[in-house]
Design a protein around this nucleic acid. Sequence first.
DNA 1: AAAAATTACGAAAACCTTTGCGAAAAATTT
DNA 2: AAATTTTTCGCAAAGGTTTTCGTAATTTTT
Lengths: 345, 345
Amino acid sequence: MKKIALKDIAAKFGVSISTVSKAINDSHEISKELKEKIKKYAKEHHYRPNHVALSLLKKSTKTIGVIVPNILNYFFTQVFYGIEKTANSRGYSIISCISDESYLKELKTVELLSTGTVEGLILSLSEETQAKGNIEHLQNLIENQVPTVMFDRVTEKIDCDKVVVDDFEAGYKTTKHLLKTGCKRIAIVSAIYNSSVGKLRIDGYKKALNENEIAYDKKLIVEVRKNDDLQLLISLLLDNKGIDAIIALDEITAVDTLHILKSKGIEVPKEISIVGFTNGRLSKYVSPALTMVSQHGKYIGELAANILIDRIEYDGDMPYTTKLVKTSLIERDSTKKTGDNSLLY
Amino acid sequence: MKKIALKDIAAKFGVSISTVSKAINDSHEISKELKEKIKKYAKEHHYRPNHVALSLLKKSTKTIGVIVPNILNYFFTQVFYGIEKTANSRGYSIISCISDESYLKELKTVELLSTGTVEGLILSLSEETQAKGNIEHLQNLIENQVPTVMFDRVTEKIDCDKVVVDDFEAGYKTTKHLLKTGCKRIAIVSAIYNSSVGKLRIDGYKKALNENEIAYDKKLIVEVRKNDDLQLLISLLLDNKGIDAIIALDEITAVDTLHILKSKGIEVPKEISIVGFTNGRLSKYVSPALTMVSQHGKYIGELAANILIDRIEYDGDMPYTTKLVKTSLIERDSTKKTGDNSLLY
DNA sequence: AAAAATTACGAAAACCTTTGCGAAAAATTT
DNA sequence: AAATTTTTCGCAAAGGTTTTCGTAATTTTT
């Protein structure tokens, strides 16, 4: 039993292809008896209209493309999940690509998908793309009228819909919270020094410091590069006497930092508080459970998908929007309680 | 600047569509001057052949479908990553669906994809599908000659290529290891009582017990259902005096179990050893770090993709294969060392 | 019984691309 | 100058589907 087409059914009953099509679609133009015969046969042979042919005809594939830099990162997994869920509920399939933080793969994918395969694209820039600043491929996308939504790792050089975490506010809020719990000298450990995201968080941090009349000290910002020894970096950092809080800009770094502090016999949060970014699966299972900034990945995915599909389906001019998704601080046991100064004495 | 087709270029230069097509594909049939004019114009307007039309013409979409039950599960994320990577390297895109453990969504997806959209399918059964045993949709798939590879959660009722973890051996190996470290009364906590996977692991466990002449005790197998209180279940379990090891059939349960034991003041592994399944991100960050069974998710994905694409591209008969991927026991600190009996006394 | 309306189906276009073949025009050879 | 080859392009088909329109045949209405 091979793939069956209208043609085959038409041949079977000695009628035309259009008659079969109409019969299967229950058109009133076809007599009752013929319709029933054809429908029965079609069902028995598992006839299903060829999706590719339909896409060509309707000029609509009901498919959107998604490019994520790294699916093993829990945040992106969550976003992906959100996208898939809402896209699906609105009748769209998703064709997914993992750029693996590579500019070239991102480029290839964009070129591949922007040829009628998908009706729109949701993407987050690869690390390499952000570092290089080479975004011609995305510019072409917009020029070619391919609806596009960028999320999280975006660039202001491209004019399109965007969904971003309010990383500035997150950095600000986090720092402020730490200050409120009595911390005075707050360090930042970042493994994402190249991204817009990291810069924004640090800007928010600076603003909070400024508001509290604490001088910004560049020595307190530690950039962790690939293959760097975090243990060593933390040791060097702690030579700056008086550090009483560390903000880690990703979950793994937060957990690693916690372990390093513990191995040094430093009590968390009594001596040093820790806040990490991205509320993934690790944070609540370590001890003490880490206070984290949740970025609502799933919600971001849902939002991005809805914006994209709205644009695909809305026939007319729609101004580009940038949605700023607020973070939530999830307080656990790696920070002191607000107003609770007992630990200070 | 809208989407541009051969038609538009043909109109621009007053030539036929076929001429333009040949010019762009650098055919010798077209004069040098015309070719250059057309190519220049095409490039300037970012012409790219419509992928849907090509798919229809070539009867090949260069796309495979992937259905995973739950992308937030790290094992599946890893498999997904492996699939994407190799599919991509072999020139295939992937269209992905998350069944969310729902039979209905799996069914809908299979029906949607088996209509010319994809050339083959890689899937792992949803929990509901496994529980219900309703696999007609997959039977149709095979009958309709859609190349299909099932991984991890498979059914023996369907005859197709399969890639499975050697869960029987894993259960056997794990149990044997625990016995070798001196454990005598080993319990199992399972949140996947419905799956083939869980049953196989328990079968392996039984074999190991049998070989060591230890009676199988059904009371030592705990099934954790949704919304069940694990804390309570563990407490009840521990009423069976003498339990000195627990095998948890998924990572979260392993970590949770560890926490519960710790909160009860039970020392791990001195009093009770713990081994968990699925070596994800959590296990090595808790303390003590958990000994886990790694299932090599990425490799499974790569294998599945290669098998599928081989079948798609090989024109002829190929017997169905079932690949059994061995697990690795990653020893950390939640189990005692082999031959080290010091902790026993 | 003639006119009008309804029923039941087929032809063809459209979606976009590639490619084999035919044909005209140009260039080359005899 | 005639015959042959080469160059250069267009036509048409094929892939599967839906849909508009046309056209018979049949039924209903006047």
